[in-house]
Amino acid sequence: MEDTAPAEVTQGLEREGAGRRPVVEIRNLSLTFSTRDGPVHALKDIDLEIEAGDFVSLIGPSGCGKTTLLRTIADLEQPTGGSILVNGVSPQEARLARAYGYIFQAAALYPWRTIERNVTLPLEIMGLPAAERAERARRYLDLVNLAGFERKYPWQLSGGMQQRASIARALSFDPALLLMDEPFGALDEIVRDHLNEQLLGLWNKTEKTVVFVTHSIPEAVFLSSRIVVMSPRPGRIIDVISCDFPRDRTLDIRETPAFLEIAHRVREGLRAGHSYDD
């Protein structure tokens, strides 16, 4: 595994030309958890490349390993086979270089910190001066429409507002890569639609690379530039679907035949992966 990685780096460079290389390169990745009841094959033979500026959704039924894949990119899980490169280096080096912002299923705000100090938490860890921290908190809370809530504590905010604060926190140190693990899964559909639109606007404006885990087909089709359909355990990639709507798409596209066609293809992919079996 260690030996093959540099070879692939050069391959990647040759193919992509000078400097332009995938943000995430996954080759033949597998991950097996050893549990008391024997090994659990969470991921098997995953091959995936994510280009800069992509919005890639990982979709699949619960327990298909899509979150595990995201966590492996983030160096929160260790693969048991294959290779993975983030910005051309190992996930650990990428994590140490603070290459990505991770947004969890729950907001995971620290209850003893105000919203502002939650947003500046990564900045404090990275040692930015106080004035800069305050300026960035203001900028990113404004971006997620939370201006005026700086002094509030997390419990004083609704679930959707808390999740927006956690997005501001991930954006605060301006990572080029955003890893989002079902960030809107716990929210009601109205709030979710609204946040989806905001997220899309943000992606369009900042040109960040986003990897987005979801189990909602409309959400995946609406947000993504590419959709990766995964099967249940062992998690494998069934289909990768391009989604060529303009970057400044609005919620209205969900009524268009093109949208429904892609949604249909995603559903077919899930069915082929036996996601609907009992």
């Binding site: 983030a74 994590r95 991770y102 969890f104 995971a108 003893w112």
Partner: peptide, 24 residues
Amino acid sequence: LLQMDLMRTYSATRWQLFRMLRWP
């Protein structure tokens, strides 16, 4: 676990983990 993972994604040092998460 979530709060701990968050600190890990920021590559926080042990002392930062203690001061900013464990202690409070």
